[in-house]
Structure formats: structure tokens, C-alpha cells
Nucleic acid binder design. Structure first.
Lengths: 196, 196
DNA sequence: CTACCATGTGAACAAGTATTCACATGAGGT
DNA sequence: ACCTCATGTGAATACTTGTTCACATGGTAG
């Protein structure tokens, strides 16, 4: 039998195991059985700590939201120049995706969007905040003359986020058939060339 | 009993029904039962025309590939100016997404990416062609002076496609909480402002 | 020490999945 | 006219899923 631990610790373990399953096999494979296997515990024990699959999904959404969107807000609040902030946010996001492929999979999963509306709305809100954060940094960049004034802050922010998202998609669908880091650097250099 | 029709017609009906199911309820809900219901035929009859679910997925991927990526190639081969071509491809893609929400859902589905590798590779190839097509148009735009020479054709093409993809995602996740057409127009105007 | 209760688990269950099969039915070639 | 075979279907099958339950076990409050 498994060593006993407090519910708080087990919850964390279960969420991490779930994210790992999504990263390896997608949301479709995120079954109680798979989570139990990845976490090294019985299926029944999962119900000891979570009321059901829905609650695991919600916990996963919170975990992801804090990891990605929270980090961007922290960077944006820093004291560097707008362009440096943008660059840090961009590459930080790329790194998180590389390390936890389950994150973009979960966020882009139509299973979540259509089968768990309340969670989708939670994610939608966080994405909205993320876009607003980037929009603010771009506005500051325009005000300081680092970014050309013809750029529309919100739409430019959407373009930047679109680049990141498409990169994550191509990485998954093409089975990691290109090197993430150089690809991200090329995209970033081109972004700079376009907006300045 | 259902009126008898040739396999070729039934195949088309089944693929369309499948796309409709994905559009309404996502890839997760793409079950034989749901397809049969949407197509108005028995489940067993689906196996009369397709060897199994895998073949339906493959047919759907081909159908989508022809609809989206084929159209872009046709536009690119036309005789208008590069910028006009890009604009037509962009809004044509947006329109297709609006009319068939199942298309982006299927293409972005991790179920397809991870559970049906051969189909994912088919899609990956078509996306690659799509990117190359747009890259070619952008290169022509630079050569003709419509697009500034600092722009890197391939990375700019990826940015454009990223804009489209992110718009499709936000539309799904936010439950169509914004107007697609005006949003697309704002994104396009900003793109023009950035690249010219 | 000991009794309680949170934690852990194998087995069982109902619901839903893809797929197969034995059997109808009717359109089209002879 | 008829007969053949492609087309259509309800029922059955084997499997997976989420969830529950009766029962073990061991840390810890008294």
C-alpha cells in the first residue's frame, strides 16, 4: 500500500500527474486510470482527494493559469524597457511550453472549451488578462518611441500571442520536427523588424 | 428504412455530418453514434461505407485540406497584386472558419495530433504547403515594393497564420463573445501597418 | 496504549464506445 | 419477370470510462 500523505500534498501530486498525462498523450487520454498510473496510486484514491474529474480539470486550469499568465504579469510590472519586457515574456512563454507541453494542449483543447464551459470561461478570462498585459507593454513601447506609432497595441499583442500559439501547435502536430529555440528567435527578430 | 444511395454519395454525406458534429460539439464528441445521428442513418450503415473511424478521420482531413489549403493555392496563383492576394487569402480563411467551426477544431485537436499520427502528418504537410504559399506571396510583395524589405517572408507568413489561428481559438473558447468580421478587419489593418 | 478517522485499495457497476453479424430490401442488369 | 448483390439495420459483443462501496491500515489525539 502507498504511504499515507495529507490531502493537500496528494492534490498537488494528482494535478502534476494530470498535466504530465496531457503533455504525453493529450487531453483525450486524461482518464482517471491514466492519472492514477502516472501518479502511482489507485483510481479509488483519486476520488478520496477530488470529487470527480471536473474538479481535477478545474484545479489543472488554475495551476496553468498561475504558471503562464501570472508570470507575464510579474514581468510586465518590472522596471525594464517595454521591448525588453516583451522579449522576456515571449521567451518565457516559449520555455514554459517546451517544458510542459501539456499546458498549450489543455488550453487549446476543444474538450475543455465545449465539455467544461465554466473552466473554459476561467481560461478565457485569464487569456483576456494576458492580452491586456501585453497590450499595455506595447502601448508603453509606443509612448517611449521603441515601437512605431502606426502599430495598434491590442492587435499587435494578438499577433504576438498568435505567433506563440502557432508555434506550440506546429510543435505538437509536426512531432517536434523543428528546433524550438532557433525558431522562436527567428520569429522574435522578425517581430522586432516589423514593429520598429 | 433509408433510401438507398451509392457509396460515393454516402461517403460525402458521412464526412459532412462528421464535420458538423465537430463544429457543434468538438472532436471528443465525434463518435460513430453522433455521426450516424447527424447523417440520419444507422451506425451499422456507416461501416458499410467506411472501414472504421480511422478512415472517417482520414477522409475528413482530406476534405478540410482541400477546402482551406487548396483555396489559398488557387488565390496565390491568380494575377492580382501580392497584397491583394494576401488580403483575399486572409478573409477567405476567416470566412471558412466562421462557416465551418469544425475545421479549426479538427486541425487543432490533440486527439488527432497524438491519436492518429498518420493523419496528423498529412495535416502537417498541408500546413507546411500553406505556409510556403503565403511565404511566396510575401516574397513577391517585397520584390514589388508593397512590403518592406526588413520583413522576413517565412516568419511574416507564420505571424499572419498565427493571427488567424488565435482568432479561431478565441472564438471557440470565448463562446463567440466578439464579432468575427470587425475583429478580423482590425487585425488585417494592423498587419498592413506593420509590414508596409 | 488505544481508539478513531483520514487515507488507501480491489472489486463491482452502469453507461457509453467501436465494431461485427445475421438478416431485410430494393435497384438494375439479364 | 427475376435474381443478384450493394445497401440498410437492430441486436449483440468486447472493451473502456467514471464512479461507488466495503473493507484494510496506520498516524495521532486523548
Amino acid at each position: 500500500m502507498l504511504e499515507k500523505k495529507s490531502t493537500r500534498i496528494r492534490k498537488e501530486e494528482i494535478v502534476r500527474a494530470a498535466l504530465e498525462v496531457v503533455g504525453k498523450s493529450g487531453v483525450r487520454a486524461l482518464t482517471i486510470s491514466a492519472i492514477a498510473g502516472s501518479a502511482g496510486m489507485s483510481e479509488a484514491n483519486i476520488y478520496r482527494h477530488f470529487g470527480g474529474k471536473e474538479q481535477i480539470f478545474a484545479a489543472l486550469a488554475d495551476y496553468i493559469g498561475d504558471a503562464v499568465m501570472g508570470k507575464a504579469a510579474t514581468i510586465a510590472a518590472g522596471s525594464r524597457s517595454p521591448l525588453e519586457k516583451l522579449e522576456t515574456i515571449f521567451f518565457s512563454h516559449i520555455s514554459i511550453i517546451a517544458e510542459h507541453p501539456g499546458i498549450p494542449r489543455f488550453v487549446f483543447s476543444d474538450d475543455v472549451h465545449l465539455g467544461h464551459r465554466n473552466i473554459a470561461e476561467n481560461l478565457s478570462l485569464r487569456i483576456g488578462n494576458y492580452i491586456e498585459t501585453i497590450t499595455g507593454v506595447i502601448s508603453a513601447g509606443i509612448a517611449e518611441g521603441q515601437i512605431k506609432p502606426e502599430a495598434s497595441p491590442r492587435e499587435t499583442a494578438l499577433s504576438l500571442l498568435g505567433m506563440i500559439q502557432l508555434t506550440a501547435l506546429r510543435l505538437t502536430i509536426g512531432n517536434a520536427s523543428f528546433e524550438l529555440r532557433p525558431e522562436a528567435e527567428k520569429l522574435w527578430r522578425n517581430f522586432i523588424a516589423l514593429v520598429s
